[in-house]
Amino acid sequence: MNHLDYLPIIKELGFESIHQVDVLQILWGGYGELVRLSVDDSSIVIKHIRLPKPEHHPKGWNTNRSHQRKLHSYHVELNFYQAYANLCSSNSPAPKALLVKQHGSEWLLVMEDLHQLGYVDVVDKAQSTHISASLRWLAYFHAQHIESPHKGLWDKGTYWHLDTRPDELEALADEDLRCAAQKIDKILTQAPYQTLVHGDAKLANFCFTSDGKFAAAVDFQYVGQGCAMKDVALFMSSAVSPEQCTKEENWILDEYFEHLKQALRLFRPDLDAKHIEQSWRPLFAVAWADFHRFVKGWSPEHWKINPYTEGLAIKALEQIKAYPDR
């Protein structure tokens, strides 16, 4: 869309003119684009979704199931921004929805620009301050939504959960992991204190203040009910190099649970923070094994398959033997 196409939208929001349109990124799989509009003396961000099925997929998974999963993910994101985003606390901020519009096969999600709120940095190499800020965001988000409804969101959050990834499971060459996939999924689904998970909590989906101490999150296509350790595992996989994971694992979990303890005092003082940590911490390896199962079936040469993740999956497979099969 050009400047003129966006004019009716900005007029509806009370702005007068558009000074500039910057494409921030093309949406995954060619489903549209994310743009920043400089309007009057401010700016807004528009997620412009185009629904027709593209001909090519970056990893070759161009199936109807993949297409339907994408469509549902955009419905979920619109639902999140309309019903949940404005409820996010100042400790786990997300851009508020300003306007949601549908024009036939095109959807427009108009949001606050996090730059205007002080979240000016996106990083591809995280320092400890960025990691702590992201874990703090996750902890407060999880604490706020423990045992809360998830109407209009995914029944199982995350983009890799087993129910939507039968093709990748069939392609998985790791027989031990394939045989354990259902049990891993069941353990995570039945874990105590189910909450809302972001579902795609990678480093690229966090924006930071200039000092790196506070984070806001974007991209809520895969938000839904789940075990909080799924978010922590996915985040660590994106923010810590494989060579540093063994060294950083305990610090990251300690940091997350310290933030969670503080968040629970605010949102759920009725819950026992120690018991939640005892319930969740052992599921870190299981949650990562669940993600590892997806990656190995989806892209067997991916860099996220490495000695650390292989070792963690072996640990999880040993661990789940203690759980009943039924």
Rank of each mutant, 00 (worst) to 15 (best):
2 N>E: 14
2 N>Y: 11
8 P>W: 05
16 E>P: 00
20 Q>G: 02
20 Q>L: 08
22 D>M: 05
23 V>K: 15
28 W>F: 09
29 G>L: 06
29 G>N: 08
40 D>T: 03
45 V>S: 07
49 I>E: 01
50 R>M: 12
50 R>W: 12
50 R>L: 12
55 E>W: 07
62 N>P: 13
74 Y>I: 02
75 H>Y: 09
77 E>N: 10
82 Q>N: 14
92 S>E: 05
94 A>P: 04
96 K>P: 03
100 V>M: 02
112 E>D: 14
117 L>M: 09
119 Y>I: 01
123 V>R: 03
125 K>A: 08
125 K>R: 14
134 S>G: 14
134 S>R: 10
135 L>A: 01
138 L>M: 13
143 A>S: 06
144 Q>L: 05
144 Q>P: 05
145 H>L: 03
149 P>N: 07
150 H>W: 03
153 L>S: 01
158 T>E: 05
162 L>G: 04
165 R>A: 04
168 E>R: 07
170 E>M: 13
184 I>E: 01
191 A>I: 06
192 P>C: 11
193 Y>I: 06
201 A>L: 02
203 L>T: 00
207 C>Q: 08
207 C>K: 07
208 F>A: 00
209 T>E: 01
212 G>M: 04
213 K>M: 10
217 A>T: 08
217 A>L: 08
221 Q>H: 10
223 V>T: 14
225 Q>I: 04
251 W>L: 08
252 I>V: 14
259 H>N: 11
262 Q>L: 08
263 A>H: 02
263 A>R: 04
264 L>A: 01
268 R>G: 01
281 R>I: 00
287 A>K: 03
292 H>F: 13
292 H>W: 10
293 R>F: 02
298 W>V: 06
308 Y>V: 00
313 A>K: 14
314 I>C: 09
316 A>R: 12
317 L>V: 11
322 A>Q: 15
326 R>Q: 15
326 R>W: 13
